[in-house]
């Protein structure tokens, strides 16, 4: 306590008299009295309370996956029956579940493969546009899809692909004949990928464009003196500049390879023009866990998904830290 008071006195006197004290206490950490710290704890309080309730309580709720849940006993009651890993065994002995897991992985891996490099390429090409108003206009337009909800995007896609929609109208205008896109299931994945790229391309490029502009102009000048062309400059200066931010984005993205874009898959598979019966983990959890009320099974599959996602993020982060000394923490 005495120490704390001393610290406060030093703080009140300003930086100069504190020097003597700092010599005495080697690790020169700033210390404040509890009373002066209290407001900061209070400022943290709403965030901590909300996180506790809305993020940590559900983590405990994951216990559902190991219980025979009953609405009447709740999930902490001594009356609860424990199923152990029973629900997991049940899930993984359902043959159709492997299809769902594979779909989730396949769709996301494909999206990552195309969606990850696309904004980088777009940023590099946009960077080569030297006319600033033109560049800015293209940028602003490219952000439009980001601001639209997935619901309206799926609505637009279905409308455009319908029998008398825009795509068919263009085909007819070019002399072709109408095709029924909405009944050919094979188109589900291409459309999914195109929509993800369309929505994320402009927005995703911001972070890369801002890194590009942070590269030192001196580097480009000396490269020019050495006779490097624009392509060589992009290859040897711009790309290496982008490496750190690219790695961070990659880590974040790979962690999501087992997540799902529920809005998009649901939007394309449910509705008047239900496209296909393509099912991913998130839609399976919704349709079986919530709609059919199979709470335990749904939670078990969710948990499986979360654990894999966590493991993936940690692994990629570790690999990245080793290979390029860039990591998230």
């Amino acid at each position: 306590m005495k120490f704390a008071v001393q610290g406060k006195a030093a703080e009140a006197e300003g930086a100069v008299p504190a020097v003597g004290r700092r010599k005495k206490f080697k690790p020169c950490r700033i210390r404040h009295s509890f009373k002066s710290n209290l407001p900061f704890y209070l400022l943290f309080a709403p965030a901590v309370v909300l996180t506790l309730i809305f993020s940590y309580f559900p983590m405990v709720g994951v216990l559902l996956a190991f219980e025979d849940y009953s609405m009447f006993t709740g999930f902490f009651s001594p009356l609860t029956d424990y199923a152990g890993f029973g629900h997991f065994v049940k899930i993984f002995s359902t043959p159709s579940i492997y299809r769902v897991i594979w779909n989730t992985f396949y769709l996301n891996a494909l999206t990552l493969l195309i969606n990850f490099p696309a904004p980088i390429i777009f940023a590099l090409l946009l960077n080569e546009i030297l006319n600033r108003p033109f560049k800015r206009t293209v940028q602003t337009i490219s952000y439009l899809p980001y601001f639209l909800s997935w619901v309206s995007v799926t609505g637009m896609a279905v409308s455009m692909l319908s029998e008398y929609g825009a795509i068919n109208n263009i085909i007819v205008a070019l002399g072709g004949s109408r095709a029924s896109f909405l009944s050919s299931e094979g188109l589900f994945i291409p459309v999914y990928i195109i929509l993800t790229v369309w929505k994320g391309l402009g927005w995703g490029s911001i972070i890369y464009l801002s890194s590009i502009s942070s590269a030192s102009p001196d580097l480009y000048e000396s490269a020019q003196l050495d006779g490097a062309g624009r392509f060589m400059q992009a290859w040897h200066i711009t790309l290496p500049t982008l490496l750190p931010v690219t790695m961070i984005q990659l880590i974040l993205n790979v962690g999501q390879v087992f997540g799902s874009n529920f809005d998009l898959v649901y939007g394309l598979t449910e509705g008047i023009h239900a496209w296909s019966d393509f099912e991913v983990i998130a839609t399976w959890v919704y349709r079986n866990g919530i709609v059919q009320n199979d709470f335990e099974m749904g939670t078990a599959l969710s948990l499986f998904q979360s654990v894999i996602a966590l493991a993936l993020t940690l692994t990629v982060n570790k690999i990245s830290a080793k290979v390029s000394s860039i990591s998230m923490w």
Binding site: T51, G61, V285, T299, S302, L310
Partner: peptide, 15 residues
């Protein structure tokens, strides 16, 4: 921690 791990929708509903 919640950035990397969550309970899932159903656990949310229960809570």
């Amino acid at each position: 921690v919640p950035m990397f791990f969550g309970g899932g929708i159903i656990a949310n509903i229960v809570v």
